[in-house]
């Protein structure tokens, strides 16, 4: 009995570890290819590059405005994250703490917006921003990302867990809603704010369709758009394309390692509702 349990455990470990290696291999292969000059032109690069070099990265940053592109991605992601934190937190407070007529209906409308795919909005959004003269501007790329129904829902859930007795104590001390919001509720939902911040940043960093439609000039483009363009331009120079991929993965990887707890927790909680 013991022996079979032990044997089973070893097999299970072996299978799960082998699976993890297979899952990880594409990342490894991306890095190896980016370090193999001329990859893709002749043959498949070797698993361990013999004459590796940073040529592909040099090409990326000298021939293309890649530094600028990275700056764009970082800038847009930071603004999106900050604005989403503000708009989500204030709305969540209204739905969690303020009594007003039609609250349930308004909250329902907010939630319903989550079901509307961006694709449905592409044409009118494009026309609207064109009328405002915002096509091919950072602001045009940013505006539609400013409110997040997901963020509002997430923060409202967190705020509902904060005891209302704390509000009452603050009210007795003469605090109004803005003080309660800032000094009582917000400090108590830090983990949820962190989760939202990570998802907002990730969402902006990885977003594709809307930036593709709005940002036309090469110097305004974000990483995913530039990468898609790179693919058309360097059809067979896989080392350059993979170098671009590495550059776009690394910051997310750093954020993920740093904030893994909030990312996984956020996803896990989403499924438990």
């Amino acid at each position: 009995m013991r022996e079979t349990t032990r044997g089973r455990s070893i097999v299970l470990h072996a299978v799960v570890i082998a699976g993890a290696l297979v899952m990880f291999f594409p990342f490894y292969w991306t890095v190896v290819t980016s370090l193999s000059p001329g990859a893709g032109l002749s043959a498949t690069p070797s698993l361990w590059p013999a004459d590796s070099g940073l040529d592909a990265y040099r090409e990326l940053f000298t021939e293309l405005p890649f530094a600028r592109v990275i700056g764009n991605s970082i800038g847009l992601a930071i603004v999106t994250t900050l604005v989403q934190l503000i708009t989500s937190a204030t709305a969540a407070y209204a739905f969690s703490r303020l009594a007003f007529r039609g609250r349930t209906v308004v909250f329902g409308v907010y939630l319903a917006t989550m079901m509307i795919p961006l694709q449905v909005l592409i044409v009118p959004l494009f026309a609207e921003l064109k009328a405002f003269g915002l096509i091919d501007t950072y602001l045009g790329a940013l505006l539609p990302t400013f409110a997040s129904a997901f963020g509002i829902f997430l923060l409202r859930q967190a705020m509902n867990q904060v005891p209302f007795e704390l509000d009452e104590a603050a009210t007795l001390d003469g605090a109004g809603h803005f003080r309660i919001f800032w000094t009582v509720v917000l400090p108590n939902i830090r983990p949820a704010l962190a989760t939202l911040a990570v998802f907002a940043f990730m969402g902006s960093w990885n977003s594709f369709l809307w930036p593709l439609v709005v940002l036309r000039s090469p110097e305004l483009q974000t990483l995913p758009i530039a990468l898609a363009g790179l693919q058309g331009q360097y059809t067979t120079q896989w080392d350059v394309i993979m170098a671009g991929s590495v550059v776009s993965i690394l910051p997310m990887l750093a954020l993920y390692v740093f904030a893994q707890k909030y990312v996984i927790q956020g996803v896990a909680n989403a499924g438990l509702k």
Binding site: M23, F24, P26, F27, W29, T30, M202, W205, N206, F208, L223, P224, L227, A228, Q231, I241, M242, S245, S248, I249, M252, L253, L255, Y256, V263, I264, V267
Partner: peptide, 14 residues
């Protein structure tokens, strides 16, 4: 979980 944080474009290209 690592591929989840990678963008669709990178996934497609890789």
């Amino acid at each position: 979980f690592l591929p989840v944080v990678t963008s669709w474009i990178v996934v497609a290209i890789v």
